[in-house]
Simulated scan of single mutants.
Amino acid sequence: MWNIDLTLVDVAQVTRAAYAEAFEQVTGVPLVYLASTGGRTDSEIFFEFLARNDVRLDPGEEPLSDFIDALGEAFARRRDQLTARGRAMPGAQEALAAVGGLEDTVQTVVTGAIMANAVAKLSAFGLDGYLDLSIGGFGSEHYPKGSLIQFTRMRAAQAHGFEFPESATVYISDSPRDVEAALIGHATPIGVVSGSATESQLRSAGAKYVLEDLTDTVRLVSAAREATAGTG
């Protein structure tokens, strides 16, 4: 399982613009104060936006679904900006190809982004073909990532007709929160120092395996093999 943002791609500028448009459309309040997005789903980020920007909801008001819809539309209007204002992370395509070449391996994503936006980010850089996105975990599901990892494992078993043991599951990400989510979801975390977190922060969160980036595919594959060693 792969995280997307700052692990496989960096489209932060486009994402921030879409957040701002969707938030103001739904709440009527400009998005002035941002929130930390690493390891969080779009649903979690929205509620932190509300708190940080002092937006008070009326009793019974539930704007999350409206925000998710608006976010998808705002991002879709910016799809042509992804390659101009974003990039694939160094080694991302080669890393996906290398891990995908391992025997009996299925690759997908567990991401905080809603599904439409996740697919757009990956397809913009030609990365979607390496992944089975039909079984992935996405921010539009309104669950924390630890739960999404568990759900994704179950979907993989249903789709492919055989079990994927916890010991055979790895989650590759740049965020300490994702490392913690992997441990909660009973997957082995592989950290990548491609976001704002340091190696020591990733290790402190529980990552035994930490890579500087994705360009060293030999080391990545070795980490994946070692993490799942003994799985029958």
Rank of each mutant, 00 (worst) to 15 (best):
N3Y: 15
N3L: 01
D5R: 01
L6F: 15
L6E: 13
V9L: 05
D10K: 01
V11K: 00
V11Y: 03
A12P: 03
Q13G: 09
A18Q: 09
E21S: 12
E24Y: 10
P30W: 13
V32W: 09
V32Y: 07
Y33M: 10
Y33D: 14
A35N: 10
S36I: 14
S36K: 14
S36R: 15
S36H: 14
E44L: 06
F47M: 04
E48P: 09
R52W: 10
D54Q: 12
V55H: 00
E61M: 02
E62M: 11
S65G: 09
D69L: 15
G72P: 12
G72H: 12
G72F: 13
E73M: 12
A76H: 14
R77T: 09
R77M: 12
R78D: 05
T83A: 14
R85P: 08
G86R: 02
G91M: 04
G91F: 01
Q93L: 14
A95Q: 07
L96Y: 14
A97E: 02
A97I: 06
V106K: 05
T108S: 02
T108K: 05
G112Y: 06
A113E: 08
I114G: 15
I114P: 08
M115G: 06
N117D: 15
V119T: 14
K121P: 02
L122M: 11
F125G: 02
F125D: 00
D128H: 12
L131I: 04
L133E: 00
G137W: 03
G137L: 04
S140F: 10
E141Q: 09
H142M: 09
P144K: 05
G146D: 09
S147R: 12
F151C: 04
A159N: 04
G161C: 05
F162A: 01
P165S: 01
E166G: 03
A168T: 01
T169I: 00
V170G: 06
D174F: 07
D178C: 01
V179F: 12
E180A: 15
A181V: 07
A182H: 01
A182V: 07
L183H: 08
A187R: 03
A187K: 04
P189M: 02
I190V: 06
I190L: 01
V193K: 00
V193T: 05
A197K: 04
R203C: 11
Y209V: 05
Y209K: 00
L211P: 01
T217Y: 07
R219T: 02
R219H: 01
S222T: 08
T228S: 00
T231V: 15
T231F: 11
G232D: 13
